[in-house]
């Protein structure tokens, strides 16, 4: 559901300094029930932005209000599952870390795995899962805590196109089914993924500052993708805005 309200997380002129360069200033307000894509060249600070939104680091300048502790989840570029733990143990991990009793945590993990289509693979080890299944398991782990902010750090980059499309559709359905308005941030290099999945595409310039903020063709209501024409228009818009950030100033 697309909702409006107070931002779940906020960046205002947030700059992070590294030994060799600085990233920012970043300005971003994440509203409940919206999907935002962050697009930019490698090293433009997309992952830094996620770390700021997650509260995993503080800005050296400016202001960052991260998502509420315990209400933020993240999916990484690789599934990043504990290789020695089965699917249900991996998914119940965040709950157990937060102190949920083991039995309850495992029951919720089982339900969550069923929701992403892995109900029959509860006791499978990560090495027994395909790339797409492992990523669905990682998505289940991120959703099991019922977050209000879901951060996706290029989770589709290493997948083949069919698996990628299925996972994007699944993520959109999950977003639509979330009880409260779930805010999602997708970091990606892929203009098509960004335009198709997000309501709003934020383009970062090579220094990590916000260069453009354009509308995407993100899902509405039931989580179904927008029609092909809308998607095509959105892809063209995003591609043009991205190209403008990469061209030298006239």
């Amino acid at each position: 559901m697309v909702e409006k309200g107070r931002p779940i997380a906020l960046l205002e002129g947030a700059t992070v300094r590294f030994p060799e360069r600085a990233v920012g200033p970043l300005d971003l307000a994440l509203l409940p029930g919206t999907i935002t894509a962050l697009v930019g060249a490698s090293g433009a600070g997309k992952s830094t932005a996620l770390n700021l939104l997650a509260g995993l680091r503080r800005p050296d300048e400016g202001r960052a209000v991260p998502g509420a502790r315990g209400r933020v989840s993240m999916v990484f570029q690789s599934p990043t599952l504990l290789p020695w733990a089965d699917a249900v143990s991996n998914v119940s991990l965040p709950l157990e870390l937060a102190g949920t009793p083991r039995t309850e945590a495992r029951a919720r993990a089982g339900d969550q795995l069923a929701e992403v289509g892995l109900g029959d693979r509860l006791s499978a080890l990560p090495r027994e899962l395909s790339g797409g299944m492992a990523m669905r398991c990682a998505l289940a782990r991120a959703l099991v805590t019922r977050p209000e902010l879901l951060l996706l750090d290029e989770p589709f980059a290493a997948l083949d196109s069919v698996t990628r499309t299925r996972l994007i559709d699944l993520t959109c359905r999950v977003w639509a089914r979330a009880e409260r308005g779930l805010a999602v941030v997708l970091v990606t290099h892929d203009v098509h993924d960004a335009a198709r999945m997000a309501h709003r595409v934020v383009i970062l310039d090579p220094r990590g500052a916000v260069a453009a903020d354009v509308g995407g063709a993100g899902p509405i209501g039931d989580g179904l993708p927008a029609d092909p024409d809308q998607t095509r228009d959105a892809v063209a818009r995003v591609a043009a805005a991205l190209a403008a950030t990469m061209e030298p100033a006239a």
């Binding site: 770390n51 997650a54 509260g55 995993l56 502790r69 315990g70 933020v72 989840s73 993240m74 990484f76 570029q77 690789s78 990043t80 504990l82 991990l93 965040p94 870390l97 937060a98 805590t145």
Partner: peptide
């Protein structure tokens, strides 16, 4: 990334 995950969930 697993370390980040543990940080995120306040392990």
């Amino acid at each position: 990334d697993l370390e980040r995950l543990f940080d995120l969930h306040g392990a």
